[in-house]
Design a protein around this nucleic acid. Sequence first.
DNA 1: GAGTTTGAAACT
DNA 2: CAGTTTCAAACTC
Length: 813
Amino acid sequence: MDVVSPELNSLLPDEIMDTEAIEDVPQPQPVATTVQSEPSDDTSVPMETDTPMVSESLSLCSDAASTEHTQDLTTSTATDSTLCISSGSQIPISISSSSSPLLTLKPALATSTATTKTTDSVTGTSVSTSGLQKLTAPFTISPANHQIILNKVASSQATEAAKSVGTQPQVIKQEGQKLLVTAIGKSGQPIVLQLPHTGSKPGVSQTSGDTKSQAPQFKVVTIGGRSELKPVVGSASNQVTTLQAQQLKAVQIAKKTPASSAAPIKFIITKTVNSKGLSPQTSVPPVIAGRVLTQNSPVIPPRTITLSETHNTSIQSIPGKKIAISPLKTPSKVTVVSVASPTSNTSQKSVALPVNVALGQQILTVQQSTSASPVKVATSQSTAQSIKPVQSVAVGGVGGSQFKTIIPLATQPNVQQIQVPGSRFHYVRLVTATTASSTGQPSGPSTSSIQTAKPMVVSTGAVRMSVPIVPAQTMKQVAPKPLTSAAQVVTTTQTQQRLIMPATPLPQIQPNFTNLPPGTVLAPAPGGGNVGYAVVPAQYVTQLQQSPFVTLASSSGFPASTGIQTQARLPLNGSLSTAETTSRPRKPCNCTKSQCLKLYCDCFANGEFCNNCNCNNCFNNLEHETERLKAIKTCLDRNPEAFKPKIGKGKEGESDRRHSKGCNCKRSGCLKNYCECYEAKIMCSSICKCIGCKNFEESPERKTLMHLADAAEVRVQQQTAAKTKLSSQISDLLMRTTPVISSGGGRLPYTFVTKEVLEATYECLLEQAKKAEQTHQPQAEAERMILEEFGHCLMRIISSAGKAKADCASINC
DNA sequence: GAGTTTGAAACT
DNA sequence: CAGTTTCAAACTC
């Protein structure tokens, strides 16, 4: 049921699976206001997070290797409940849910497949092994290695907000929703889980964690949710934010709480810490992988790990809208963002579940709306399926991010792509404004924003989103920024949003998936998968939480067929890296035969959609998503590294940048842009197979060329500056239509060059010319006479100006 | 702007 | 893996 087409499954990276991090989620036993941890019996299924439970469970599993890093997870559900999970040193973990949705905290069992660093894993940590525990009471999990402390958030803003609602946020009700949180972290690293209750105001919930504090690295964060039996009314947004010292990935998941409490909701969040260490440099591959698996039978232990809530609700199907946001090239790390298809009920509270998880180096931002369980889809939510339009938030960003974000998207017909100036794009599907909305309000670094039904700037008629852009690297600092406007996080509330871990062993999937070009949208499984994936640079995701906004505007219609209807406005400065910011806009391609679906096309090779190109018969757009995906797969089959950046770090001791494959130039001497090395402004290296290479450090030709290039650049700059200055002066002069005598007396004579003066001068010069003609003066003499007269005119003008100035001064004007 | 050159990508 | 073809960008005129 869920989602990824078989084809695409093969593309999914192992990282997504990261079975190690995955743990089974025992069947939730809804108990009112209690936290329950039950080891699941089913260890056989590695990924199984989802037993055929009525309730949805959210499980967080963290395998934190580093003790020194703090984690802040904040999950907030906008409408019904807010889930805030934050773990940071000395930050208590609190879970509060004002709304009805039941939350059950259970330590997930490490799945058999997982090689499990289970020692770290949650299983050891028992939220409540003994039995039910009330969430209201502070809850501590596995203090030893991995501490998870669950406390009321009474003090927290979220709780306050919940109180305002009239519900007790701290209490987790068993309304069929199960919250499974498995976290293994250092002792002393509190994790705060907060369930927003319905109606929570955006930005209300906050996690108190110190974002700057060291955060344990998460290897895998999976958030998946699905509604199962009953449609749930209400919406909840969860936001989890984890900050890691060096790099962050924020996962924001917006989900809608089901209207009916009866419908179980399962959230599973698995967080594992990179065992090898926190340092970004670690050889351990980045690991965040998300995958949506299709589950046909609820009974079968789901392979999927999903953090999402499903909503059923409106029968109406909202056309999904997709916006493509240019992704960075080959981010090395992957951020998974799942977006559930929006449910249609307007009456429903939009649920935004932004989850920001800063994992060591990874920041995941997942926004998820509730998603209906596959089962529901088949049954109760027959209507729901129509609703599937999925949203992904696309934020334009600058290339160079090392993260890749995967956003599951619903395969709705209506798709729009946004091409961000400068190129990197992402797919974004926009749900109709009615459902979509979520905004995270920045409260503090660690704070999670509660997403209200009103997201950033989103208008139903025309979808408009403003997304704060933040460079992934800066995520640490991001949260604090106060956002004035409601929308900080772009989330479209959707009935279904899923962040899913692959249920099946993903090894086979992994390889290709990581290499997917940014912006790639993975089509949902043909069999009714609602969710597709969009691969976007994590940077974009992280940007969502930054104060700077990206505004995405799309026409109300969102006809699928329409080309790019959305407009993305991105601040190109500030958060973006220098290289990125300075990067010139992508050049339009001129492909004629490749349909822009081969690597010949720079757009395609860069993982971008064609936009404003001159290509013919272009298939590199959302209108040809199927073909495009197929082409991507083909490319990846041919070369798994196809979409990775060609310019990467060289071996140790070598220059920082070098071509990954090296060039093969034969005639250009590697001193023309034919040469990819030269084009990238890097030296050829030992791996190059070029002939007659002159692109090396000591090359005199190269030095000369570079010198000339620099000189030319300087000239251009000077000319530009001169033109600018001249233009400014001219415009300034033209502005002076009337003589101005300022009290300051600083005006130059030209201020007296009025229309009348000019006409008089013209008459004088013309008269002089006539005189010269009448006297049959040679041309040279005539010119001299005219110029002489012109000089006299100027003298008179200047004299008059000076006199006027003096007179003005005498009268003290 | 048309035509040529070039080398990566694609194909065999 | 090597050779050939295709392709689009870079370059020249």
